[in-house]
């Protein structure tokens, strides 16, 4: 029984490796149950009038790509499918560049034109200062150029979008992995003074913190973590990386549970002997 408590961790590493890679190569397709949070988020976006302008705040970088990029892509698919317009920007360096090629592909799929149906304003430093300025004058906040340095005045979409306020945007969707993000920037600067509806897509680790804002009504809905992203992909009908990652995630969780049970069986079986 003592052996149950002292399995060499290299064996554990090997099993985790086999589970993750084996299932990624041969998915078993566990059923995905749509949770209330993802459903609410989907319904909210679906309920926007066609042609709405939506802000996508890319507040993450490579380290959270696994969880948040699938959400961005599913949401972009939904928005373009509904003929909504997208303005991409963010306060995390490299975040907007990370999503650029993916959104470009989705835009092409739906026949959307850059500068007319969507635009990438790029990474903007300054955190709260940038966001605050964006709520007053988007052109000035972005120094008058998009992510490639092209003048904003040359893009038709920017003729009808002057500031990050409810006058121009129907919704701001924030994909956030920390600071700057939803709690410290978007809620105090965008929601509280202006009441522009916010929707949050966040990593599993931040779900609990951000759920407080959902319960308080400061965000309209939330896409929670990798599981939420998978549910959203299923709702939009664009299976992607999040759905593919649910099988390894599930079996990993099951393996950890099994290990905890084994470890505790060993612990209780040997406890009396040691005493």
């Amino acid at each position: 029984m003592e052996a149950l408590m002292n399995i060499d961790r290299r064996w554990l590493f090997l099993v985790v490796f086999v589970i993750v890679f084996g299932i990624l190569i041969h998915p078993i397709g566990l059923p995905i149950v749509i949770g209330p949070d993802a459903q609410k988020a989907y319904d909210y976006v679906q309920g926007l009038p066609a042609g709405s302008v939506v802000w996508l705040g890319i507040e993450f970088n490579q380290s959270s790509k696994g969880e948040l990029l699938p959400m961005v892509l599913a949401v972009a698919n939904q928005l373009f499918k509904n003929n909504d317009k997208i303005v991409v920007s963010g306060m995390w360096q490299y975040g907007t560049e990370l999503v650029q090629p993916y959104i470009e592909n989705i835009a092409q799929k739906y026949g959307k034109q850059y500068g007319v149906d969507w635009i990438n304003l790029g990474w903007r430093p300054g955190n709260a200062t940038f966001l605050h300025q964006a709520t007053q004058d988007l052109n000035a906040a972005c120094a008058g150029v998009d992510h490639t340095g092209q003048p904003l005045s040359s893009f038709p979409i920017m003729q009808s979008v002057k500031a990050l306020t409810p006058d121009y945007f129907k919704l701001a969707i924030v994909f956030d992995a920390g600071t700057p993000g939803l709690p410290d920037a978007y809620i105090p600067i965008v929601y509280e003074p202006l009441h522009l509806p916010l929707l949050d897509g966040t990593i599993q680790m931040s779900v609990q913190e951000n759920k407080n804002y959902l319960q308080a009504g400061q965000i309209v809905a939330m896409i929670p973590g990798s599981a939420g992203a998978a549910q959203y992909e299923k709702l939009v009908g664009v299976p992607g990386q999040a759905l593919a990652s649910q099988d390894p995630l599930s079996l990993g969780a099951l393996f950890v549970t099994l290990l905890v049970i084994l470890g505790n069986i060993g612990y209780f079986a040997t406890r009396g002997k040691k005493a």
Binding site: I7, R9, L12, F13, V16, F17, V20, G252, F255, V256, L259, V260, L262, G263, N264, Y267, F268
Partner: peptide, 15 residues
């Protein structure tokens, strides 16, 4: 993923 698996196995004891 590897370290969390190993850590939860060693640390989660119903003491």
């Amino acid at each position: 993923a590897f370290y969390i698996t190993s850590a939860s196995y060693r640390a989660f004891r119903a003491r």
